[in-house]
């Protein structure tokens, strides 16, 4: 306390702002997670300018160079810069994970919200039981099974061509639906019982408007937390599927297919091929998880400022 008092107002305001930001992310860990996620987004968006080399440029003389000098992360078997490839790969990973979560949110929240709000019909029962069944099997298992079934070729439907990334996004997105729908359903069902909803009904407001303007905002906290954690899951799944060769296809770099390439050099000593993409995955996943946990602490009403009982 005495420290802050001896400094001038600007510094103290700065500290106050910092404290508010840290609090908004749900504490120091959540804040670290947010910083990691933010840094990744910057890397992915500005990859063109940040990456020192072209990630696709093959240069046989520079094959398998150790980290150092011009290539801080070394080069791979084709002489491509590992640092640039790790940076560019963040695009594929984040895009797949991000779009998948958006798809999952759009469908899952819609389903869960309407099932939770308009309760009691057999349709509600049928939808929720079906989603329960789907959610009973882990998403990773589903993903690998489905990619195995649908293969790695591009699919053409009418004028649209779906590449592997797009297929992965769609599939992951659909696989997220049950979990997100169930989470939304649970809060929507309980919020719909609240008296403020009854009060809106008494004002003659139509049901769908009550659902969107009153119930939905009060259901979002757990959904946002889950979506953040699903981003981390998406990174892992994209990497796993690409690792077994069913996801992002070479030469486009993704952390998963970089690891797959590095398999051949695990024993021969070229450690940088596997360590850097592996570390990128770990840091990203940890980042999203920290952020998710932080948001949970922040948004969970049980963690709100304590109230005093009599």
């Amino acid at each position: 306390m005495s420290v802050t008092l001896t400094h001038d107002g600007a510094w103290r305001r700065g500290m106050d702002r910092l404290r508010r930001i840290v609090a908004a992310c749900g504490g120091p860990a959540g804040c670290l997670g947010a910083a990691i996620v933010l840094a990744l987004l910057v890397l992915a968006v500005f990859a063109t300018w940040i990456a020192p080399h072209d990630p696709l440029r093959v240069s046989l003389p520079d094959q398998l160079l150790e980290p150092g000098g011009d290539f801080p992360f070394g080069t791979d078997q084709s002489g491509r810069d590992v640092l640039s490839r790790v940076i560019w790969a963040s695009r594929a990973s984040l895009a797949v994970a991000g779009v998948a979560v958006l798809i999952g949110l759009a469908l899952g929240v819609t389903l869960g919200l309407s099932a939770g709000f308009f309760r009691g019909g057999w349709a509600e029962q049928a939808i929720m039981r079906l989603l329960d069944a789907v959610a009973a099997i882990p998403v990773l298992i589903w993903a690998i099974a489905l990619v195995g079934i649908f293969g790695i070729r591009e699919i053409e439907i009418g004028p649209f061509t779906f590449g592997n990334e797009v297929k992965l996004m769609l599939m992951l997105g659909l696989l997220y639906v049950p979990t997100l729908a169930r989470i939304t359903y649970t809060s929507a069902a309980s919020e719909s019982q609240a008296n403020y909803v009854a009060a809106r009904r008494l004002q003659g407001v139509p049901g769908w408007r009550i659902m969107l303007s009153d119930v939905l905002p009060n259901c979002l906290s757990p959904v946002i937390v889950q979506a953040t954690l699903m981003l981390a899951l998406g990174i892992i799944i994209e990497a796993s599927v690409s690792f077994v060769g069913l996801g992002v296809q070479p030469p486009t770099p993704s952390w998963g297919n970089m690891l797959a390439d590095a398999r051949n050099y695990l024993l021969s000593g070229e450690w940088w091929l596997s360590v850097f993409p592996g570390a990128a995955i770990s840091v990203t996943v940890i980042g999203f998880n920290l952020l998710g946990d932080g948001l949970r602490d922040r948004l969970d009403p049980r963690h709100a400022l304590p109230t005093v009982a009599g």
Partner: peptide, 15 residues
């Protein structure tokens, strides 16, 4: 015909 509720917490939208 309007109503006043018992639980003052849930009778108002917290947001």
């Amino acid at each position: 015909v309007q109503m006043v509720f018992q639980d003052t917490h849930s009778s108002l939208n917290p947001r």
